[in-house]
Each structure stands twice: as structure tokens, then as C-alpha cells.
Amino acid sequence: MLEISVIIPVYNAAEFLEKAVQSAVQFEEVKEIILIEDLSTDNSLEICEQLSTEIPKVKLFQHPDKGNHGAGASRNLGIEKAAGSFIAFLDADDHYLPNRFDAEKKLFKDPKIDGVFNAIGTEYLTEKGKEEFQSKFKEISLSTVNYPAEGEEVFKGLLSLSTKTFGTSFHLNSLTIRKASLEPHQIRFNKELRVHQDSDFIIKLAYHCHLKTGNITEAVAMRGVHDNNRITKIVKYSPQYNQRQFLLWQSLNQWAISNQIPAEPRKRIYLMYKSFDLSLKKGFIKYCTILGEVLKNPEILKTKYRFTYYNR
């Protein structure tokens, strides 16, 4: 039987936390639920303490300095504390469905598989959150990929290097990985990224490990959309959006260079990094720099870079 450690970073999630924890407790495969409380300003810590007292599977940790370090650092601490052979993640405002680990029980019988990912659904918890989400994104009832994939095809799909459109990627809530598979390359979340550390982690994981699709036609977890979701607060291609994307692709570009990954994905990552780097420049220097970069790398025009009014 699988022994899974579920890691939940907790920051100002008092309203949702108990539901998240209870959704993980139900599984026999879940050995422990690790709460990493990240200096919340609401009563999340009190709820964490109550849950860890009442439910034997729940273990509570804080950072050594009891400070706020972000979701990436919190998940890293959870990985270090995990005693299970497998690791799964859950956001504190989301929850698992009863079929969460059905695919894993079958697929992890193959020792070459390091990780399995599935589809997740969307649950609107507030009307304002629903309006904000739907104003920025098309209606997404299921976040999943478009076809079964494993190994190198997953990595290529995430970078849009596959001959087929990979889809809307996958969410951490749907991922289960062998803890031992993280260690050869010390795969961890980039704690310097306050957002997009999940995307950064998933792309690196897909390169170093053998990932495989599980259930990609039905949700195995639900993402909660509410008033305080950070994803709904940022206008696409606004300066703040471009800055966050720049930091993500800068992190991946540095990783690609240091790990000497193959030329095709390395170039793709560089072009994405450079496109958002250019988007942050202003005035005459910006357009001179864009021209120079396009002359060197015409493919940059095929990236997500946009000549928008935000960048003038």
C-alpha cells in the first residue's frame, strides 16, 4: 500500500482549512497530513493546533524563525519533514475528491514511474471570486491535459514543444511523487518566487523525473475560487503580470543553463525569459533592444510577448 504524506502550506486559510484536511484524512493511503503554518494574520494557527490535537494523522510545523516565507519555502519544509514514501500537495483552500489516489494505486506498481498527475475541477466559493475568475479566464470546469503522456513527452508538452497541444497543464493538487525521486537532483521549490513557484517546480520535475498521466478525464480534486485568490487579481500582460512571468522564466533559464539541458528546450526557455525581460523595458531603449533581439532570435515573436500599451 502507498504511504503518502500530504503537504498543506497554510496562510490565512482559516475559513477553508478544516475542509481541506478532512478531505485528505479519509484515505487509508495517507500516512500523514503536514501543515506548514506561515505566520497567518487570521486564526489559521489556532485551527492548525486544534486539528493536530484532534486528528492523529495531522502534524503541525512552522518555519524555525516562525516567520512568513511563502508557499515555496513552506512546501520545501514539508518535504523535509515528510515520513511517507510518496508526497502529495494540497492548497489550504482546496480539497480532494474520493477518487484522488485511484490512478496512483495502479500506476506506481511500475517502479520507473516517479510521479503521477491527474485532472482537477473548479469550485466557486464566492460570487465575487467567480466574477473575477471568469472575467480573466474562460470557463474552466476541468484543468487537465489533452492526451495521455509520460516521460519526455510531458516535459515537451509543458514547454509547448510537442507536436500536439498539451492543454492547460496540471495543478499541484493532482500530483503525487516518490519522495526518493526528488533527491538525486535535489528538486525543490524556488523559495525566491512568491508566485509561480509551482510552475517552476513542475517543469524541473518533468525534466528530471518520469511523470505519467493518471486520470485526466475526471477531477480528483477541486480548486476553490474566492475573493482572495491571487490568480484573479492580476491583469494579463500588465506590468505586474509581466514581472512575475519574468521571474519565473529567469529562474528556469538559470536552471536550464546550470543543468545543461538539451538545446531545443533550453532555447525555448531562453526565449520566454527574454520576451518578458523585454516587456519590462521602456521607451526608446526598449524598442532598440527588441529589434536587436528579434534580429538574433526571430522566434521570439512566437512567444507570449506582446507589444501592449502596458509596456510603453
Rank of each mutant, 00 (worst) to 15 (best):
F246A: 07
S199H: 12
H208R: 12
T168P: 04
I140P: 03
V235D: 15
E264Q: 14
G129L: 03
E264Y: 08
K130N: 02
R178C: 09
T163I: 08
F246K: 02
E123F: 09
K136H: 11
F201T: 04
E132Q: 15
R266Y: 10
L175D: 04
Y207T: 03
K236T: 13
D198S: 04
I257C: 08
P148W: 10
L193N: 01
N146A: 10
N253E: 11
S135Q: 14
V220S: 04
A263M: 14
V195M: 10
K191L: 10
M222P: 03
P262Y: 03
S258T: 14
V225I: 14
S174T: 13
K156G: 05
T176N: 01
F201H: 08
T232N: 09
F155L: 03
L172P: 02
T213S: 10
T232H: 06
N259D: 09
W255M: 04
N259A: 10
V145Q: 05
H210A: 07
L182G: 03
N190P: 06
W249Y: 15
G224F: 00
A180C: 11
H185F: 13
L175H: 06
F133M: 08
Y147D: 11
A256R: 01
T232V: 13
V154R: 01
N190H: 07
S143R: 14
V235P: 08
T217R: 15
K179P: 01
H210D: 11
G214K: 03
T176F: 05
E123M: 07
Q243Y: 10
A263K: 15
N215V: 06
E131A: 14
V225S: 00
I202Q: 07
F170V: 00
P262R: 06
T176W: 07
A180T: 14
S238V: 08
R188M: 09
G157M: 02
K236S: 14
I187Q: 02
L247H: 12
G157P: 04
S135M: 10
L158E: 05
T232K: 01
Y237G: 04
I203E: 02
N253L: 08
L142T: 08
L175F: 06
E127H: 11
L161F: 06
